[in-house]
């Protein structure tokens, strides 16, 4: 029965999320646009499914995957786990000893992004709009690789303690350079993919990883160093999506040259 009350709570939380949107949409539709909504019944059913789906989704994550994932982030960053391999020798840890953390960051970044509902939505839309030129899976994998690389680099930054802004500003410079070389059609979508990657699934697990790591690495403060992983996760997909488009364009050009 416990999961039923949990489900009720996540239903309420989702309702609170949807309510302002519904008020704005129907308010403008009735007061400003003053025209009936086409297929009103269908749209209302759609909203109901979104509400129900998101609640079930959140409840399931909260019940099964999040507790385990959070516990895992804590255990992997714990000094006891690091010391295991060195047979009781209390040597000073250097950044390379945290290799399982980087691997975990990569894997969890990739897998949570693939399951992110808002990314699926944007990929479906991009597929429709581009008349099939942009594959749903191609885009999602490209974004997921970006997030994975970003988060593992972000955990490395927490371990080494370099200032966040140097990484982010370097990233911006990369994005600007790529913007000039990437196919023009992909640029807005690439910029968007930075913002859509980090929502329901990714943020809770990644935040736990960052805070756990900042707590256990000597000399780091949770408040100053625990943040920043989300910033990495929303910057790197911009680069990886543009790179994906550049690679596909390059391959198409190679194919065209072969045929001639």
């Amino acid at each position: 029965m416990e999961w039923l009350t949990g489900l009720f709570h996540s239903l309420l939380a989702t309702l609170r999320d949807v309510l302002p949107i519904a008020v704005v949409i129907f308010g403008f539709q009735l007061l400003i646009l003053r025209r009936p909504i086409p297929h009103l019944k269908r749209v209302l059913f759609g909203f109901f499914y979104v509400l129900l789906g998101l609640s079930l989704f959140l409840q399931g994550l909260e019940q099964a995957l999040f507790p385990l994932g959070r516990l895992m982030a804590e255990q992997l960053t714990h000094p006891d786990f690091m010391q295991n391999g060195s047979a009781g020798l209390q040597h000073v840890l250097n950044w390379a000893d945290y290799y399982w953390v980087y691997i975990f960051a990569f894997a969890i970044g990739f897998s949570t992004t693939v399951a992110e509902p808002s990314l699926i939505a944007v990929a479906i839309k991009a597929h429709q709009v581009s008349a099939g030129a942009i594959g749903v899976w191609g885009l999602r994998i490209a974004v997921a690789i970006g997030v994975a690389v970003g988060i593992s680099l972000g955990t490395w930054r927490i371990v080494t303690g370099y200032p966040l802004q140097y990484f982010i500003i370097t990233g911006y410079v990369m994005v600007i350079i790529q913007t000039y070389y990437a196919p023009k059609l992909i640029v807005p979508l690439a910029y968007d993919s930075g913002g859509v990657t980090t929502s329901t699934v990714t943020v809770p697990l990644v935040a736990a990883l960052g805070l756990g790591l900042a707590e256990s690495v000597p000399g780091r403060s949770t408040l100053l160093d625990g943040f920043g992983l989300i910033a990495f996760a929303s910057l790197f997909p911009i680069m990886s999506v543009m790179a994906y488009a550049q690679i596909s364009e390059f391959r198409a050009r190679l194919d065209a040259r072969k045929k001639v």
């Binding site: 086409p38 749209v43 109901f48 789906g53 079930l56 989704f57 099964a64 509902p117 939505a121």
Partner: peptide, 19 residues
């Protein structure tokens, strides 16, 4: 639950939010 939820969400997305 997560699987069911994601399925409903995608379904509702194309029925309600996009249109």
């Amino acid at each position: 639950l997560v699987t069911l939820g994601l399925t409903f969400f995608i379904y509702g997305l194309e029925m309600g939010l996009f249109p």
